[in-house]
């Protein structure tokens, strides 16, 4: 089958179980959000898919082929990771050249254009870049590499709001022009909630949710209004969380909204971040 398939993946670090019997299918041409608290196993999962580490048990396949020591399968994936795997002494331009030799579909002209958009000098060495610009460098390669499977682990680490917004816009533009499977692992849930089609939530090494984003968000709703009115409304309902500002209150609830809601209360969609907090606590 096409896509990335994980079967019974298990990984331990000493006594710590980083992944426990994870089964997951990532379909073609979809954008996934991989969410989980620190230590949930997100990076471990992505590292196993790219054969950077080995699972203790289970198997990861890309388009039906195992990733273990398989250049053909690995060549279809590009992973942007927090850790820098490139030699620090190398110049960005040189890395672009080498990337082209490893990934023949890498678009160097596009990468240079992105460098101009992100104000990154391609003649600089990686050693001389700040954390933010290192992330930009990695993003530029990821956006230009043109592989069927793109795994982005904390893709906006250290980026300012302008660059984050620019990245999201370019990512969507790129996806609409040339669709591929994108997995975004991030803690900035609100920022990616508008991009992702499916949400994968991990907790303590286990996959606890995999659902279309809209479907997941339709499982709850937000209610806002005067504090007293909101309190009265939520009294016997499943509340995820509450925010209070002065005399106003916002409550996040699970379930479907009633039809007989007071006119003083305003109803809106659920917040993915609030839902995530509820699901992972």
């Amino acid at each position: 089958m096409n896509g990335i398939e994980l079967k019974n993946l298990t990984k331990h670090y000493g006594n710590l179980c980083a992944l426990e019997q994870v089964n997951l299918t990532l379909e073609e041409n979809k954008i996934y959000g991989l969410l989980g608290r620190n230590g949930a196993g997100k990076t471990t999962l992505l590292n196993i898919i790219t054969n950077r580490i080995f699972a203790d048990d289970g198997e990861a396949t890309v388009d039906g082929e195992t990733v273990v020591n398989n250049d053909k399968a690995l060549g279809k994936i590009y992973m942007l990771s927090e850790k820098l795997y490139y030699p620090e002494r190398m110049k960005i331009n040189n890395i672009f050249q080498w990337t082209k030799s490893f990934y023949p579909d890498f678009d160097k002209a596009y990468a240079i254009r992105l460098c101009e958009m992100f104000e990154l000098n391609p003649n600089k060495t990686l050693r001389s870049l700040s954390t933010g610009y290192l992330t930009i460098f990695k993003l530029i390669i990821a956006l230009s590499v043109n592989v069927p499977y793109l795994l982005l682990d904390e893709p906006v680490l250290g980026l300012d709001a302008y660059h984050r917004d620019l990245f999201y816009r370019i990512l969507l533009e790129k996806f609409s022009e040339k669709p591929c499977t994108i997995v975004i692992s991030t803690h900035l849930i609100e920022e990616v909630s508008g991009i992702i089609e499916e949400v994968i939530i991990m907790k303590q090494g286990k996959l606890i949710h995999k659902e279309a984003c809209e479907e997941l968000l339709s499982k709850g709703y937000t209610i806002s209004g005067k504090a007293a009115d909101v309190d009265a409304f939520i009294a016997d309902r499943r509340v995820i969380g509450v925010d209070t500002l002065g005399g106003l209150k916002v409550a996040y609830l699970l379930g479907k909204p009633d039809s007989n809601i007071s006119k003083d209360l305003e109803i809106s969609h659920l917040d993915l971040q609030k839902l995530f907090i509820q699901l992972t606590n």
């Binding site: 054969n51 273990v68 250049d71 795997y85 490139y86 080498w98």
Partner: peptide, 12 residues
């Protein structure tokens, strides 16, 4: 590092 980043297996 360079090989793992660029989808090259350890065998290669």
């Amino acid at each position: 590092g360079m090989m793992l980043q660029n989808g090259v297996s350890r065998k290669t």
